[in-house]
Amino acid sequence: MESAIKFELPNELNAIKPPERRGIRRDYVKMMVLDKATGQTEHTQFYHLDRFLKKGDLLVLNVSRTVPAVLKSKREADGAEVEIRLAHRKNESVWEVLPVSGDLKEGDIIRFSPALTAAVVAQSSETPFVSLAFNLCCSDLFNQIYSLGEPVRYEYIQEPWNLDYYQTVFATIPGSVEMPSAGRAFSWELLFRLQKKGVRIAYITLHTGLSYLLDDKWHKGPDKNFENYIVPEETVHVINKTKQEGGRVIAVGTTVVRALETAALEKGELHAAEGWTNLYIQEKTNLQVCDGLITGMHEPEASHLQLLSAFIQSEKLYSAYREAIDQHYLWHEFGDMNLIL
């Protein structure tokens, strides 16, 4: 199993800029369609998605909106500069954050702007995170974060792209510190075309946490990564109706799989739920809700690949990924797409 998801990803296949800056629309990225039963592949573009979905199928989208999670501040006591990355929102005014530069200890007050300060309320040598209690909450806090912050950007991205490039068109509820990127390729035009065909659309919310913690010693598996989710009653109703009528439930992104399967696990059947999930989905997981998946291209040995192997045998997945490399698919949040059905 382990060897099946190791592969070399050539540097030139890192998507270093959004499709729109490569001269194509967001829904014109490549799409590899992968038959989960046979492992057969077909190569097309994402705007042809409607050809592969049928009337009565259901797409489930994550409406979490990306927040610009990189924030600069100064320590009130001595004016020392401190840069942090928001990691997980604990409540309306408290976030777990990762200090990137500068030291923070319990009791420190840091200032981000004339209007925004935060106190360090928890710190431990067992974790790289500290907890910050901000002096603002709710929309006032988000307004400050949106005006001051920058999106999290990893080493393969060389330019600071505007936050708009890190949003899906349908995102409404702020909270993700990294873009739920599987939904990025959708345009409103494509969503309307799918609805016209009779494809249903429903929504969940899962706020993504910070995945890379700068130091490998802190790297945690998915079972240690708690993310906040909401599966509303309305979505449960549409999923149940779809299944009763023989349609397929297609998750848009690993975040959607995690939320839906968590909500089904607690009582053995899907029900409306909210809370924190640390569900670790892998090859042996018996998926109760999701029949198919739309996702991006995942890094070698990533836990996301183990989640994908709950849909398709890892050997078939590995073979398809070799093909995607040969076909020059692009990886990461600005890259190409994979439909598993």
Rank of each mutant, 00 (worst) to 15 (best):
A202H: 01
L305A: 05
P174F: 01
V121M: 03
S73D: 13
E76P: 00
E96Y: 10
R153Q: 02
N225M: 08
G107M: 14
D291Q: 10
T277P: 00
E81C: 02
Q288D: 10
G102P: 05
A185R: 03
A115W: 09
L190H: 13
W276H: 08
D216E: 11
L206I: 15
L307Y: 12
L58T: 04
N278E: 14
E269F: 11
E333K: 04
N143M: 04
V152L: 02
T168Q: 15
A202Q: 11
I109M: 04
I24E: 10
I173K: 15
T66G: 04
L71W: 03
A171Q: 13
N14M: 12
S64K: 15
K220F: 03
R75C: 08
T295G: 05
N278K: 05
N338K: 13
L141V: 06
I230T: 15
S181R: 01
I340T: 05
K105G: 00
E245I: 07
S147P: 00
K55T: 09
E12M: 02
A263G: 09
R258S: 06
F112V: 08
G23A: 14
S314T: 01
M1E: 13
R248L: 02
V94G: 00
L213Q: 13
K72G: 14
E8W: 08
V60H: 07
